[in-house]
Amino acid sequence: MKEETIINFTHHQTAHCENGVVSNLMKHNGFSVSEPMVFGIGSGLLFCYIPFLKVNHAPVITYRAMPGHIFKKFAKRTGIKMKREKFSNPKEAQSKLDENLERNNPVGLQVGVYNLLYFPDEYRFHFNAHNMVVYGKQDGRYLISDPVMEEVTSLSEKELEKVRFAKGAFAPKGHMYYPISFPEKLELEKAIVSGIKDTCKTMLAPIPIVGVKGIKTIANLIRKWPKKKGIKTANHYLGQVVRMQEEIGTGGGGFRYIYAAFLQESGKLIGNEKLIELAKEMTEIGDLWRDFAVEASRIYKNRSRNDAGQSENYNQVANQLDHIADLEKVFFKKLKKAI
């Protein structure tokens, strides 16, 4: 490969990596699509409790669709064709990447976070569904646009290979992807409607671990944790719930604010006043998720505090979640009717 390839690619920081890569690649190809638009059309919003799986020795809750799904649904609903490749051989993965860069084609990569050296140490966990764009190579280093970072960065060949071939759940296996064909004109209206319908359906699904019902299930579990698991473990679990909700990438309030931004933008785009009103409501619900995080943090602030009051505090934050679940149930029923 040539000594130096730098594609003229503009980095825009986003809240979440998957939306960010899609939005930035779309912009690179001349389609101005915002992060909330990608998230909403790709039906990114979710609440799901994943039983039997533990991460960092605590239960897992996700506030967004499974890795890759936002991308897939967005592409399908807007008529974009994607090329995806996975590799068993790291050398082949690298040469395919180099080929694309030489063709002036920036690509998305799925990577593991644990060996991403530019992340603060405290954030480096074994999480394999992070996404970034590679837009060039200079002095043997790959030029990286990581959507959650403010600025672009770079990784050596060895460093990039390591994160592309991280192991464990959702192992990326060198996963590389990029758009190969676009519709003549981007028809967003239909895509917005399908995106919203899909989200309403999931959030109102009659499954105890998903959507509104999933929130209720977690509220009930939280009530039981102090007695069943002991305060110390309960505090660890509760801390993880807040981390999943607020950690880098959610844009705040477990993705509720990004979703509100999507509803507002869509309402204006397709001239639907109801969506603009509902965006306000979703913002208020997002604020309640933030309040829940504040109350929860008062509980786990003292990691090993153990007294009768703690159990009562657990009941209170669980009540907050029940209230949110009730509001979201009403909200998604209204949203379904609004389109």
């Binding site: 960092n56 607020e246 504040v294 990691r303």
Partner: peptide, 18 residues
């Protein structure tokens, strides 16, 4: 942009202590 938020910093620090 946000430099951080206490409720999640506490949660992260607890996870690291753990």
């Amino acid at each position: 942009n946000s430099t951080g938020w206490e409720p999640k910093t506490v949660a992260l620090n607890n996870a690291i202590d753990e």
